Amino acid sequence: MKKILLATALVALSTGLAAAQDVVRLGTEGAYPPFNFINDAGEVAGFERDVGDELCKRAELKCEWVTNEWDSIIPNLQSGNYDVIIAGMSITDEREEVIDFSQNYFPPAASAYVALSADADLKGTVAAQISTIQAGYVAESGATVLEFATPDESVAAVRNGEATAVFADKDFLAPIVAESNGELMFVGDEVQLGGGVGLGLRESDTELKAKFNTAIQSMKDDGSLNALIEKHFGPETAKF
């Protein structure tokens, strides 16, 4: 019991110091373009790299980037491996039970199905990335959800016949469909899920959250956030 109490106290102490430390560590997946990916130089790139760097500049914070697999991205925030999740994470009530969120820096957007044929059975086996709101939606839809660690694996499951369709953010799927030369296509209806994409933070880091909220709002107010959304997702993507 003493060891448990000591460990709990140490975690509480370390997580409460994020806003005051010299470097704020930004945790991302690095495998979800155009939100985030690893470029040819081995560096984090994409929409969230541009947004994160600008937010840190406006908040006068020194930041560094850390990559982490999606399925453990929340536990590793809680354990102190980094201070902020910036990884295309939708704001949901379920996630807000365990972490806190900034205001959204990407508006609520559509999720969509992609398949090899227009008559694909969306109540069959549908692929989705594990621990996403899309995986939860598929599970509740009556279909059989086939979960994968990465979004690319969920798309590959459709191509190799493991799944009848994949369900994911439309903004992630759109360039894949466009580059498939007609092999893949959107099917079924689009679905609105979540409250947009926000920064994930530990509930104790209230000062850090306030700094980022101020920076996000300033980017919304001057139009620079919409400009980055259009740069990475195109003019037809939902903006603020």
Rank of each mutant, 00 (worst) to 15 (best):
N39A: 02
E96K: 12
Y82D: 09
L146W: 00
A109H: 15
V145Q: 03
A139W: 02
Y137N: 10
D53P: 00
A139P: 02
N81K: 15
S117C: 04
E97G: 13
V98S: 10
I85V: 15
W65M: 09
S117I: 00
A139C: 05
R58G: 05
D100S: 15
V114S: 09
V51D: 01
I86Y: 09
T125L: 04
S117V: 08
A112H: 08
Q103G: 13
I133H: 05
G142W: 12
E140Y: 07
N36V: 11
E147S: 13
A118E: 15
R49V: 00
K62Q: 15
A120V: 01
A135C: 02
W65E: 03
I86Q: 13
E69I: 13
K123H: 10
D53L: 06
P107D: 10
V114K: 09
S117P: 03
Y113I: 01
A135Y: 09
P107Q: 09
T92M: 06
W70S: 09
A87L: 07
I130T: 14
N68D: 09
A110T: 11
I38C: 04
A118S: 15
V44C: 08
V114P: 07
E43I: 05
A143R: 07
G88A: 12
E94R: 11
N76M: 13
Q134Y: 06
E64K: 12
T92P: 02
G80R: 03
A41P: 02
E96G: 13
A128C: 10
Y105F: 15
K57L: 10
A45Y: 03
E96R: 14
V145F: 05
Y105K: 01
P75L: 07
